[in-house]
Design a protein around this nucleic acid. Sequence first.
DNA 1: GATTCACTCTACATCGTTGTAACCAATGGC
DNA 2: GCCATTGGTTACAACGATGTAGAGTGAATC
Lengths: 338, 338
Amino acid sequence: MAVTMHDVAHRAGVSIKTVSNVVNQYPHVRPETRRRVEEAIAELGYRLNTTARNLRQGRTGMIGLALPELSLPYFAELADSVMRAAEARGVVVLIEQTGAQRDRELQALDSSHRRLTDGLLFSPLALEPEETERLEVDYPMVLLGERMFGPVDHVTMANVEAARAATLHLVERGCRRIATIGAHPGETMGSARLRFDGYRKALAEAGLPFDPDLVGDAGLWHRSTGAEAMTRLLDAGVELDGVFGMNDALALGALHVLHTRGVAVPHDVAVMGFDDVDDARYSEPLLSTIDPGREQIATTAVDLLLERIAGSQVPPRRVVADFEIVARESCLLGRTVH
Amino acid sequence: MAVTMHDVAHRAGVSIKTVSNVVNQYPHVRPETRRRVEEAIAELGYRLNTTARNLRQGRTGMIGLALPELSLPYFAELADSVMRAAEARGVVVLIEQTGAQRDRELQALDSSHRRLTDGLLFSPLALEPEETERLEVDYPMVLLGERMFGPVDHVTMANVEAARAATLHLVERGCRRIATIGAHPGETMGSARLRFDGYRKALAEAGLPFDPDLVGDAGLWHRSTGAEAMTRLLDAGVELDGVFGMNDALALGALHVLHTRGVAVPHDVAVMGFDDVDDARYSEPLLSTIDPGREQIATTAVDLLLERIAGSQVPPRRVVADFEIVARESCLLGRTVH
DNA sequence: GATTCACTCTACATCGTTGTAACCAATGGC
DNA sequence: GCCATTGGTTACAACGATGTAGAGTGAATC
């Protein structure tokens, strides 16, 4: 049926192991032999059987990526970056969706997929921070996000710092009454809490008072919830000249409402988002935001995981990605110039 | 290192093949033996080595899904559906992004991943319809979408019919001057052309004249391009009372502009989208749209592929998914009631 | 001229599973 | 009471690759 190394070896008049050596770039093969083998490979259209190699080598060459949902833009783009990073390192990514449900997150930690992958990149969203013992698994794992921490490698965004920088960016642009959208009251960890902390830190540093009226709650971080929160703020008649959306979807929703209400952005109100998703490049006006270093998070996570797979026994590491302010139209110097 | 069938067999005092029989639900095993084996499995924490099984059985248990980009909502949701359908059938999905680039689409047809999967679900977006011979591959494949057709199984949406239905839906709601957004002038196949055909068909059936001024071109089907096209139509001063967006992103962009310009939806202008992406459930007003049967497309495609993998030699099949009109706020009976 | 060494290649066992053939009991039909 | 059948199990050989050990070369070293 399919062409095997055996067929190639026969054709080239060498042993099967020599074919293997050629395929695996083993240096001590005579050029003439190599040529013959390569010819045979080409003539027969031979392709290496990865399954057999994996069995022999005891690895699968695949890593798992368990995330809440591909339909959330941040995760879709994260998956994109992870796949690219993995490809560059010669491994393949197996994506699993957990739907941000606790049982499915637990299941991902223990599914049959785990025998199919050499390790797991895990981005929990429903698991409780108290359940860290669930993360003590017997295979290599790297944790993503800020939902929880455990005795494993972990790659996170600089949530507090980046939120602080985003808020200060608005301050520098002349904003004095800065609202934030996306707060989760009562949360002790998680992105919402951390970004909120960064927001307050910036206000404190800038000597601006914190006003609870300027905080818009939003459980889900959707465009629609962002729009609703913005509407509530405007309807409440709160005076404001800046908005920090805790992610781009929220900020885009807010942008939409401001536009609708005839509030000029950035002239009357400047807006910052967080995540730098693709949509932020297509809004009107273009959304200023924080690039949380998704690319770096992806490559770092893949690298850490591959080190573990290779057998590294160093203590769990924690890496915080670099972030960058992406200044676009929605926070140009609207307020300070006049 | 890892527990193998051999260890289990030793522990249970049976042969390795008997363990295999138990694991594979072979019926002729004495209950007592089965119990002993299952105990040993539990005690040792044995997990089947999928790689070895796959090698032995000559299959990988995985199917590939090559699509343009996960960050396009339709494809993210398609991937979601495909993964669910595959899981229900005991196979795993390996996603590959082609970035809608011709060379990467060709590469996907021939990449090393192909040796890792038993078959491929392929959704091309850049390959030219003339290049159908590229689709003559030596592994099972099912084509998705309307970009091109070839000598392989194919699952598509009812583009023409559904676009016609969407347009007629607007007609029934009282619209007489219906614009469409997303046209690709000069295209001979592809969704844009087919949906445009459906639009014209509906107009003809309703006895409404076709007016080129009501056609908004949009190369990329993004929110932003939808907004731009809508803006152009309004700026041109074209009279209109309905808009058919060729996908939801375009329609949402149009909705945004209408809202901004103070045009009441659906009172002054009714709007229909196409795709029924998640966002359509969160817009203001809620977007009416076409559910193109994504779920059905996914399950059908997986089933067809699995049949081919199982060895089916029947001639290439073509399946057109059922669609449904999802009537939401943006096309309520705004125009006919007054 | 014998010894060492690097190079080139081969034979064989092995990774963990499943298919095949064959074995031994127990059952049933005639 | 014998033969055929079925049930329950096992030994062994695959699947297609790679690691190991070792056998031939020929050149360099002493």
